[in-house]
Design a binder for these strands. Structure first.
Length: 975
RNA sequence: GCCCCCGUAGCCCAAUCGGCAGAGGCAGCCCACUUAAAAUGGGUUCAGUGCGGGUUCGAGUCCCGCCGGGGGCACCA
């Protein structure tokens, strides 16, 4: 570095010294501690808890700490929330801003498998890197509220919540909890209340036997049909390549694991499930009460997939001569008259009862699949369907396959005999696993009818331009839709639905119903590095909760952390959990508190999925050291309880659901984490543990910082930082070279293998943390994706340098501000800036706030001497984005720490202009500008405009037809 | 195939209610400082808003249809 650089210039080196000094001081003085009204940390005398004082919870989605540390993209959201938290503190709010770690998970486990090192060790190392980086960039998290999901104290409460869920059932008839904004009935209740209903006969026991006559194991099985966390043997997603089962949400559309991209197979396995489907309606409805991005709400609505329609019974004879009822679900009951055949899923239970021994009369050749008998045909088809992986079903596209079951059902409105087919385009997991096929109004049914030579009856009149050879799925008048009792003819789709459903209900043939795409959440994993279930199995095979005083159940040490993995396409393999190998841990004795004393038990060897810890961490921030509850209800109510005002855009009359005031994170969690957390929160609400109905009142998805990737002639990425750009002189595109070799440029993610990673460490080293923060925030709106450009960072550095120079002499280090009064123009500029910056910060428009501050700072730079009265408010305004520099200047200006210094207030008197420039347009084109008084009347302005010489020239004697006046800024003359 | 978001200067981005297209930054160019360069400071060039229609006195903004980019869903009855 040159010796010419002034000694007191705001360089990266000086910035570094300032930043470390203030970071140390803030830590020493616990500057960012917020006040709790109750619980172990109660400080009721804290002035911030006084009536009428604002309180806000601001947080980011906590990170999974990867061994590589952060690149510049990761802290974008963190800086944004930090700026907001710091701004809110200056407005006097009690601000809870904390950060933890989502620390269970697969990467650490993989690393442990490779190295034999315990995953806790690598995880702790990664966390300390993250902590160092977050401190380095000046994030004002409250240190005492931090924790990791792997901390035994946290695991204890995660397990406790699991037990609450396990010990609860959903009563769809129960009134909502008082204080809920719910409009329909339905609430989780303790399982004990269900047992009471069974034993005193208020509720019939499934199976019909009295409750008292059931064995413990039988009772447990009945209760498993109700519990919100239950074990079920059901088709689940088995991924041999990972050696674990997966939730639906973790399987991609083409039937592979989201992580690792291995094939996933449906296997019937006994696994833990969470009854999230019980909450499908509330999870959909309450989206309206949240201030969330519309696209996230849409994704959740689609995922839940509520569709309303009707269930209709089609009589079908069984082979034993009885008459069964084939229930179908349809969203188009209005097309019932056009149902010319039926299709059931290959796994449908009724198939076994309706398939006759020989092909009935009327069987067409195309229907038999060449088989000698229906039984042979159906069995072969079922076998074929079962062997298909989801991948194969996908790659076969939309070509329809199926086979006639040999059974004929009766269409309940037409009385027609309709053939029943078995086909895999109907899914057992959705609706009733059976459909009525209406080729006239459904494209899939049309395809099938075409392939299998089945009749088509149109029951909605297609529009005149609709092709003859296609199903018509639009709206139109019903046709061919009448019998002796009911006629839909002439009705539109909606009216026809209503009339036919009424008739079905009247005659007992069907009823209005709702189905969902959402399935229950598969909650167990065959992994080591996760929360153990707080569950043991007794010798009768009954699951018991581990008594509360024995929580947390901690992971045993095992010699091998790996689940048993298999060939990725070995569909017949079975999951084997790593914990099963810790035999001493698995087999133990335990007093279950049921009077039997210590009995031999076997521990559950599955672990919870990595989503468990992130389902409730925001609650623990509120009261992290509470030993009696996950969170003190008074603390929860204070911080995230429902507010008086509803969120913007909420429907009229909706109640505020409560929740975190601001939650910032990536859109990749739109369905998984955010749906699971909402579900847990609602259970906790129903059971009375929290007063809020939703975890996150307001959500913002921050954009991603992307970067250029440069590849050499062979296509290999070269270090992006060493690439040279050559701008072409004729305005054409730039070319790029690396070590003299031409390279190509593309745009994408930042990643180690792409050799384009930029770390916050490098940026802090080169520019200082405050410059880094200002740059990240000035790149554009928070939600936006944007490219990283290191060479542009200097602009933010220059801003801070100029600000520094406006206060401190670069050569002497002396404070140079004067006590002169502000000129009227400067005062106005200052107060306009204060006004704009304040509202920009409040609305998270940090990019425009920074632009305003740069503007004001540039004005001050031009002055011979900078007045204290102008630069002090500017320093205060800068504090949220450049907190260390601002604190340093504030101190040099003779004050103490400005973390809680009040944000400057704009003087309304200085915001109004005396005179403004009015634009005069002729035919919408600007023809003149007039300086007029700000309070000029419309009539005066009109007269003034019409009198303008320039205007008269453009009017050129043409008659004025109309004059639009928007005093004081605009006049438009229409001729 | 269906749905959602985004297209403003060479680049990143501003533009309350529909009212003068430009706040801020990068790059470029010119100048000052310098033996020189970097750094720093000062000045300055640059678009009519992806395309085509429409509504309106007036459209970047509202409506319709395309094009381009990104994302979600995809046999869900």
């Amino acid at each position: 570095m040159s010796e010419r650089t002034p000694q007191h210039r705001y360089t990266a080196e000086l910035a570094g010294r300032i930043e470390r000094r203030w970071q140390d001081r803030w830590e020493r003085e616990d500057t960012f501690a917020s006040a709790n009204p109750a619980g172990p940390w109660a400080t009721p005398q804290d002035p911030r808890l006084a009536d009428g004082r604002e309180h806000r919870v601001v947080m980011d989605m906590f990170p999974y700490p990867s061994g590589a540390g952060m690149h510049v993209g990761h802290p974008l959201g963190y800086v944004a929330t930090d700026v907001h938290a710091r701004f809110l503190r200056m407005t006097g709010a009690n601000v809870l801003y904390a950060m933890g770690f989502d620390a269970f998970g697969l990467p650490a486990e993989h690393y442990a498998v490779q190295t034999g090192q315990h995953p806790r060790v690598t995880t702790e190392e990664a966390m300390s890197t993250y902590r160092r980086q977050m401190r380095m960039i000046g994030l004002s998290h409250e240190p005492r509220r931090t924790f990791a999901t792997i901390d035994p104290d946290y695991v204890r409460w995660t397990q406790w919540i699991f037990q609450q869920i396990h010990d609860a059932w959903y009563d769809p008839e129960a009134d909502p909890r008082p204080g809920s904004g719910q409009t329909a009935p339905g609430r989780a209740r303790p399982i004990g209340e269900l047992v009471e209903q069974f034993s005193d006969g208020r509720r019939e026991v499934p199976g019909g036997r009295p409750w008292g006559e059931l064995s413990t194991a039988e009772q447990a099985r009945v209760l498993d049909g109700y519990r919100l966390a239950y074990v079920s043997a059901a088709p689940v997603n088995w991924c041999p390549g990972l050696g674990t089962v997966l939730a639906n949400e973790e399987v991609t559309a083409d039937g592979r694991s989201e992580r690792g991209d291995f094939p996933v197979f449906k296997r019937n396995l006994s696994q833990w499930m969470m009854r999230i489907t019980a909450y499908a309606d509330r999870l959909t409805d309450d989206l309206d009460r949240l201030d969330w991005p519309e696209r996230v709400r849409l994704m959740q609505r689609n995922w839940i997939g509520r569709s309303t329609g009707a269930q209709v019974a089609f009589p079908v004879p069984t082979t034993s001569g009885a008459e069964a009822s084939l229930e179908v679900f349809t969203t188009r009951p209005d097309t019932l008259f056009g149902a010319t055949f039926m299709v059931v899923a290959p796994e449908h239970p009724l198939v076994g009862q309706i398939v006759p021994e020989t092909w009935p009369t009327g069987t067409k050749d195309a229907w038999t699949g060449g088989a000698p008998s229906p039984l042979a045909a159906v069995t072969a088809y079922q076998r074929q369907a079962a062997a298909k992986s989801d991948v194969e079903r996908q790659t076969e596209g939309k070509a329809k396959s199926g086979v006639f079951s040999g059974a004929w059902a009766t269409n309940p409105v037409t009385g027609a005999q309709v053939p029943v087919f078995v086909a895999d385009y109907v899914l057992m997991g959705y609706g009733t696993g059976a459909i009525m096929a209406v080729p006239g109004q459904d494209e899939r049914d049309w395809d099938f009818a075409l392939a299998y030579d089945l009749p088509v009856v149109r029951t909605v009149q297609p529009t005149p331009d609709h092709p003859e050879d296609q199903a018509f799925t639009g709206d139109g008048p019903a046709i061919n839709s009448a019998n002796d009792e009911v006629s839909l003819d002439g009705l539109g789709v909606e009216d026809a639905k209503e009339r036919i459903v009424a008739w079905l209900e009247q005659t007992g043939r069907g009823r209005a119903t709702v189905t969902y795409r959402l399935r229950d959440w598969l909650f167990s994993r065959q992994r080591y590095w996760g929360e153990p279930f707080p569950v043991v199995w007794d010798e009768d095979g009954v699951a018991h909760a581990v008594p509360d005083d024995q929580l947390p159940v901690t992971l045993p040490d095992v010699p091998d952390y790996a689940p048993r993995t298999f060939e990725a396409d070995d569909a017949d393999s079975e999951p084997e959990a790593p914990l099963a190998r810790a035999t001493d841990w698995v087999h133990t004795t335990m007093d279950l508190g049921d009077g039997r004393g210590p009995v031999p038990v076997r521990r559950e060897t599955n672990t919870m999925p990595n989503w468990a810890g992130s389902c409730w961490y925001y609650l623990r921030y509120l009261d992290p050291e509470n030993a009696a509850a996950p969170v003190d209800p008074a603390v929860e109510g204070y911080w995230i309880g429902p507010r008086e005002e509803t969120v913007p855009g909420a429907p009229e009359g909706a109640a505020d659901p409560g929740g975190v005031d601001l939650y910032v994170g990536g859109v990749e969690h739109a369905v998984l984490h955010l749906l699971y957390a909402r579900f847990w929160h609602k259970v906790l609400f129903d059971l009375g543990h929290v007063s809020s109905e939703e975890p996150f009142r307001r959500l913002i998805n921050q954009g991603m910082i992307e970067a250029y990737v440069y590849r050499d002639a062979r296509g290999f990425p070269v270090p992006a930082a060493e690439v040279e750009e050559h701008t072409s002189s004729d305005g054409g595109p730039s070319t790029f070279t690396w070590q003299g070799q031409p390279v190509t440029q593309e745009y994408g993610k930042m990643g180690k293998s792409l050799k384009n990673v930029v770390t916050p460490d490098e940026m802090v080293e080169q520019f200082g943390a405050d410059t880094f923060r200002v740059y990240e925030m000035s790149m554009g709106p928070l939600e936006q994706y944007r490219p990283w450009e290191t060479r542009a960072v200097v602009g933010s550095q220059r801003f801070l340098q100029r600000l520094w120079r406006n206060v401190v002499d670069e050569d002497t280090g002396e404070v140079t501000v004067t006590d002169e009064a502000l000129s009227p123009d400067l005062a106005k500029a200052l107060h306009r800036t204060i006004d704009a910056v304040g509202s920009d910060y409040a609305a998270l428009r940090t990019n425009t706030a920074i632009a305003r501050m740069i503007e004001l700072n540039n004005l001050l730079t031009k002055l011979d001497a900078v007045p204290r009265a102008a630069v002090e408010p500017l320093v205060q305004m800068v504090a949220p984005v450049a907190p260390h520099l601002a604190a340093e200047l504030w101190e040099r200006l003779g004050h103490d720490d400005l973390t809680y210094a009040p944000f400057p207030q704009a003087d309304p008197a200085l915001l109004v202009e005396d005179s403004v420039t009015a634009v005069v347009q002729v035919r919408g084109k600007v023809r003149d500008r007039l300086d007029v008084a700000a309070d000029i009347s419309e009539a005066d302005l009109e007269a003034l405009a019409l009198g303008s010489e320039k205007v008269q020239r453009f009017l050129d004697g043409a008659p004025v037809r109309k004059v639009i006046v928007r005093a004081p800024s605009l006049v438009n003359i229409v001729v």
